[in-house]
Amino acid sequence: MVKQNNPFLDFDVTRMVGEFRMPGVDTEALLAAQRRNIEALTKANQLAAEGVQAVMKRQAEILRQTMEEASRMMGEIAKAGGPERQAVKQAEVAKTAFETAIANMKEIADLMTRANQDTFAVINKRVAESMEEVRAVMAKAAEGKTGPKT
């Protein structure tokens, strides 16, 4: 298995933050929160990629089915008999093809919506957690400066 380098995880944030220490602020807690942010972003990107793969796979299946159906329908039109019957059969085929195309578009849109919802759920959850973590660290730092609140 090939190890993939993640520039965000390889970056030495600890060293950088250590140079800019703020008195009373728990930089380790802030760094841990940032690591969780990056992990959530990585998870969201993975979900997005999986969603794109699912859509592409389904589109390929739809294309294959469409080609098979078109071939079958062309045979039915040819066997329909005279020009009038062929015209009626062509209209039926066109109607069926249109209805199938609409159903396929809806299915693809649903797949994309589901993938987007899953991806954004990860990000939204992490943003809320991160804001609470930062608030807690800052409240602790403020409490340290002014002493415990009574």
Rank of each mutant, 00 (worst) to 15 (best):
D10Y: 00
R15G: 04
R58L: 09
R21Q: 15
E19N: 11
M67Q: 13
P23I: 00
G18P: 08
A49R: 15
V55K: 08
G75T: 04
V17A: 09
A78Y: 12
A29D: 07
F20I: 07
M16I: 11
T27F: 10
E69V: 01
E61W: 07
F11D: 02
E39V: 01
Q53K: 15
F11S: 00
A60N: 13
M67D: 09
N45G: 12
Q65P: 04
R64M: 09
L31G: 02
G24M: 01
E69R: 09
L9R: 08
F11Q: 00
V13S: 03
A29T: 02
A40F: 03
K57Y: 10
D26E: 11
G51A: 07
K43H: 09
A78Q: 15
R36N: 02
Q59C: 03
M16N: 07
T66M: 00
I77P: 03
R64D: 14
N45D: 13
G75Q: 01
A78D: 14
N45R: 10
A44M: 07
T14K: 15
E28T: 13
G51F: 05
M67C: 00
T14V: 06
I77H: 02
F8C: 00
A70K: 06
M73Q: 15
E69C: 01
R15Q: 15
M67H: 08
I77D: 04
M73H: 11
Q65Y: 05
T42K: 06
Q46V: 02
M16F: 14
V55H: 09
N37I: 13
K57I: 08
G75H: 03
A29C: 04
E28H: 10
T14M: 06
Q65T: 01
M74T: 09
A54E: 14
D12C: 01
T66R: 10
R64S: 11
R35F: 08
Q53E: 13
A49Q: 15
L47N: 03
Q53F: 10
M74E: 15
E28P: 00
M73I: 11
A44Y: 05
V55E: 15
L63P: 01
R64A: 14
A60H: 12
V25H: 07
G51H: 04
Q34L: 09
A60Y: 09
L30F: 00
T27Y: 09
P23C: 00
M74H: 13
E39G: 05
A78I: 13
S71E: 15
